[in-house]
Nucleic acid binder design. Sequence first.
RNA 1: GGAGAGGUGGCAGAGUGGUCGAAUGCAGUAGUCUUGAAAACUACCGUGCCGCAAGGUACCGUGGGUUCGAAUCCCACCCUCUCCGCCA
Length: 424
Amino acid sequence: MLDIRSIREDSESCQQRLKARGGDAWKLITEVLECDEQRRSGETEKQVLQQDRNRLSKEIGKMRSQGEDSAEVEAQVRGIGEQIKVIGEKTEKADSRQRELLLQIPNLPHEDCPEGADETANPEIRTWGEKATFEDFEAKDHLTLGGQLNLFDFELGAKISSSGFVVYTGAGARLQRALIQFLLDLHTREHGYKEVNPPVVVNRECMFGTGQLPKFEDDMYGIEDNAHFLIPTAEVPVTNLFRDTIQNGDDFPIKVTAATHCFRREAGAAGRENRGLIRMHQFDKVELVNVVHPDQSLAQLEVLTNEAEKVLQTLGLHYRIIELCTGDVGFSSTKTYDIEVWAPGQNEYLEVSSCSSFGDYQARRMKLRFKDENGKNRLCHTLNGSGTALPRLYVALLETYQQADGTIRLPEVLHPYFGAAEIG
RNA sequence: GGAGAGGUGGCAGAGUGGUCGAAUGCAGUAGUCUUGAAAACUACCGUGCCGCAAGGUACCGUGGGUUCGAAUCCCACCCUCUCCGCCA
């Protein structure tokens, strides 16, 4: 949620930043300001009346205790009560409309977020490693490899659930488990994360807190008449762990990681570009969440991105970092780096991590604050990034480390986790 | 799922219609005392909104209602705990 005060103070530049995203959200600002005006004048008016009512009510109490007749004053207060009700309803209406609008307005892209209309304008920031080459054979894709090695079964997934779900089998399931363990160990041992294992079913409040609601209800699996949802990412439960709290500034940066299943309807995404494991309705992901001091967030985004990159470096997988331009940054995000791993069998880069700073946007929605040096409550900044998503990491791993005979030679760090050096 | 109890400030715990935003204790902050610390004592010590400020106003699980006035009464919902049932 944007700060109504800063909208009030400089609606012009606020609209400019929203326009940089594309879309129509900037048009809502005018109505927000109207509501704000009504809300504040109504509130002031109401308070004056409440003040009168409180004063007179106390007098009634006094009069009665002294045995005086208070009927006249009572009638007067009754009249004030009516007025309060009328003005209160009007104010309440403006207030809830204002809130409704604010919840629909995305975050402002950061000043140093590159301008651009869509993903084609996303600049490449850096790359690491080299594309894997295969001298004496043609690289197969993960579907072929996984099929030969019986690592996963899409038909079984469809049979017991529906398309978009997969059953990992045998060594394939074990590899998945090994990867999760490896990732959690990396982040907890080397990057100082605290591990949690949260629910994957959360209430609506959480979804408002991180920004999935109200705009993206259709992207999620709802249960019990959408009173609860399956999480699309661990960002939701983990960040909301801190909802409505006042943190101690000395604890910054707060770093929490979680491996969870993630569920996405991916409505309208079915199609050729998403064959195999690349876009699933259910997948595993290790998420990194940071809660930081406002002054730290930009620097911390670099740290967080480095931590996610470390995964690929450790596994020896070639990747590139893309920065999302103003037209492509996510709804709640103010600045985002995507990490894309090279998948030789696909002959393309796959997004395995999206590292974002949300500024105070999520914190304001979920009332996540800290006490600053002067004892004042201020909003924290939140960040998160995947560290990393599993299926695409899995794809890159199989396709990068395939051998001529279709077996997979695993990078050394995974040997103890997987319990073998090769699959096949 | 059934029966009962309960949800008040960081915690504990008073408060059953009127100076209650809320006693008291603990914790915390500042100070006095002390060579230092502890103890003792003194003061401060929830959150939001409106306002330049003074100040005002709202919040006692959530939402409604009754009343001149609600933490206190009524209704609904949510949550927690205990016992029983069921169960990985």
